[in-house]
Write a protein that binds this DNA or RNA. Structure first.
Lengths: 203, 203
DNA sequence: CCTTTTGAACTGACTGGTCAGTGCAAAAAC
DNA sequence: GTTTTTGCACTGACCAGTCAGTTCAAAAGG
């Protein structure tokens, strides 16, 4: 809505930016509204002028971040298709897109993983939607692959999609947190190898 | 040490049990010591009689849970070796052992994932140790496989281990949270297929 | 036996501090 | 002159951690 006001949007962007870092580091409830306002260089009243509550700020942050991620995954898959690549190529391209995203927005990824499986939260319904969006893109490509005949019909699309997402997520977070000297290409190569069955692929 | 006091150990066990569920649902800072005490059927003072602080209770909970997990993974790998299985068989057995563990202690797993990549926390050093333990077991088997010649030398042991752990973790949490009607065997089959390269494995 | 003492384990009311959210008048910004 | 932001004081709820006192099983003493 109200896309006129550039000023307001700039303020909101500053608040997202401040909140995402702080919440990734400390968690939602350990992060205070005062901290967010201070980090954003804004008065506390402004937070409440722009958002109904701390929770709403967080929910919109989630929606915003996930829409960026899904857009990036989707376009990776589409570009591969246009280039005439296979479905597996598309999955590989999505792995890379995922890594690029995590590299650019590490704090968001951290926060996403940390909050995704909580069962009891106020923003639970938001999370459910938000999860579906990200995994659904991967599921879509897998399903097309099965329909094509490129992938075996025995594949369990849902579980495999979740496993692939998990593979990328955890490997990338580990990369960020514990071996940040590695290049994105290294990480991509290792994951690509797993996808192509060149680890336990035997036979 | 002090194996005499059965009473105390029973109290601590009750507190672990109560804390793990609540923290998994709500997160560490959103969970109050009063809640933990009430759920454990114990007075608040008892928590502080048994643990120095809320943080210490949590750290010991982490250590306790991870030692269970690594023991389970290790024994799965060892049993496979004794039965004369290959390294890939051992990895497969560890995937299953991981799933069984997550099935039995879903709350612990949730909490582990949620807190593992926080960068700013008091218990950071504990987490570092605790992460190494779990992933190290997988790394060990991969390394042995490379030494044997069963696995390619081009494999990046660290990244692959992280990716495998992530695959299991995320697929399992997704199973718990969103498709709990599936059987453990279904989930294991899907992950096993990925490990054996029967998804993108083509060639 | 029975009584007394001991001390580990536990209790729950209380304290000092923190924090989400409010209210509002005045200043910027547009 | 309307929208947005500021600055700041204030409130009421909530919460980690403390502490003086209670409980009780088992050891010590008779």
């Amino acid at each position: 809505m109200d896309s006129s006001s550039t000023r307001r949007q700039a303020t909101r962007a500053k608040l997202y930016e401040a909140a995402v870092t702080l919440i990734a580091e400390q968690g939602f409830s350990a992060t205070t509204v005062d901290e967010i306002a201070e980090r954003a260089g804004v008065a506390k009243g402004t937070v409440y002028y722009n958002f109904k509550s701390k929770t709403e700020l967080f929910e919109e942050l989630l929606r915003h971040g996930v829409s960026l991620l899904t857009a990036s995954l989707r376009s990776a898959a589409e570009e591969t298709a246009e280039r005439g690549g296979s479905r597996v190529d598309a999955l590989d391209a999505m792995i890379r897109a995922g890594l690029v995203f995590i590299d650019r927005y590490p704090a968001f990824t951290q926060l996403y993983v940390a909050e995704l499986w909580r069962t009891n939260r106020a923003w639970n319904s938001t999370l459910l939607v938000v999860r579906q969006q990200a995994v659904a893109v991967v599921e879509g490509v897998l399903r097309e692959g099965v329909a094509d005949g490129e992938l075996s019909e025995d594949i369990d699309v849902q579980l495999t999609a979740a496993a692939l997402v998990g593979m990328v997520l955890v490997a990338a977070l580990d990369w960020q947190a514990f071996q940040s000297e590695r290049s994105l290409d290294d990480v991509h190569a290792a994951l690509s190898r797993l996808l192509h069955g060149r680890v336990g692929g035997g036979r």
